[in-house]
């Protein structure tokens, strides 16, 4: 039982990171109907932003650990950097191609992804870096022998807050309503006076800054980062987004949690060899049997 509780917790804290990345995929798909394959690498840039900000700020403190406020500041810094990155990539690369066939944009996204990965190797170096200890990890909950550390708990709580925040933005604000309108029907939305370009930029900024936050949380949980670290989590978050129903925000969160839990259970109880196979096996099954995903709605193609 102890083991099971611990595994559930391990899975949730991994899953919450997948969920944050998956949100970006799903939001951008919802607005533009295209998969931004560079999204996993934005997540990597987030982790590296945290690494350099952490070196600048945290190591100035005496204890070796940053204060909670400082850690928050570093996370916000990384989110801003990634938001700007997302904004710039969209403006420079995707916007000129908006009228081109979907395949062109998809291939361009892969190009942006490779550019960030190998550009990252050039700038940051190829060897893994040890992520700064932003917060000291203390055992918080001891549930029948299952130790839950403060860092994984911080990851889970922060991810939860960000997801609720996103939900509020999308459902309660004017720009959120505009986003939903564009997602529903871009032409009609623009006829109603909605500034489509602004909405698309906003979506990229929000999605990328969530990936940036995920990068920091990942570094907190697994403090070794390298320029290719975004590939696998990026792909798995993509699977999570498809599993939940691509374009559906609560679906992405749910999908991320499911993938995280399944991976942890497979590794812990069956064999770690199948860890990666599980995510992609799910992708195949979902595409075969329920292509709209768990929470996705069937879209009627207008002819």
């Amino acid at each position: 039982m102890t083991e099971f509780i611990q595994q559930v917790f391990n899975g949730l804290s991994l899953g919450s990171i997948y969920a944050l990345i998956a949100l970006g995929y799903t939001m951008i798909y919802g607005i533009l109907r295209f998969i931004n394959f560079a999204h996993g690498d934005v997540f990597m840039i987030g982790a590296f932003s945290g690494y350099y900000l952490g070196i600048i700020f945290a190591f100035a403190s005496v204890s070796g650990f940053a204060s909670l406020g400082m850690a928050l500041l570093i996370m916000i810094g990384a989110m801003v950097i990634c938001g700007l990155l997302g904004f710039t990539v969209e403006k420079l690369v995707y916007k000129p191609l908006r009228k081109s066939p979907k395949l062109t944009i998809l291939i361009t996204a892969i190009g942006v992804s490779l550019f960030l990965e190998y550009g990252g190797q050039l700038v940051f170096g190829a060897d893994p870096k040890s992520f700064p200890s932003l917060l000291e990890n203390k055992p918080v909950v001891n549930l029948a022998g299952a130790v839950i550390g403060s860092n994984p708990l911080v990851v889970l709580v922060t991810a939860g807050i960000l997801m609720v925040g996103l939900r509020l933005i999308v459902m309660k604000t004017k720009i959120g309503t505009a986003m939903r309108a564009v997602s529903y029907n871009p032409t009609a939305a623009s006829l109603m006076g909605i500034n489509i370009n602004a909405v698309i930029s906003f979506t990229f900024i929000i999605g990328s800054s969530l990936a940036g936050a995920a990068g920091i949380l990942y570094g907190l949980n697994y403090p070794s980062i390298d320029p290719l670290m975004g590939i696998l989590p990026g792909l798995k978050a993509f699977v999570a987004a498809v599993l939940g129903g691509i374009g559906n925000i609560p679906g992405a969160a749910l999908g991320g949690m499911i993938i995280g839990l399944l991976e942890t259970f497979v590794t812990g109880y069956i064999s770690p060899t199948y860890r990666d196979a599980i995510a992609f096996g799910i992708l195949i099954l979902i595409l075969l049997f329920k292509p709209t995903g768990l929470l996705g709605k069937k879209e009627i193609e207008k002819v």
Partner: peptide, 16 residues
């Protein structure tokens, strides 16, 4: 228990 070089998450194995 086993892992593959480059894995970042070892908590499942360590919990077992």
């Amino acid at each position: 228990q086993s892992f593959s070089a480059g894995d970042k998450d070892f908590k499942a194995q360590l919990t077992s």
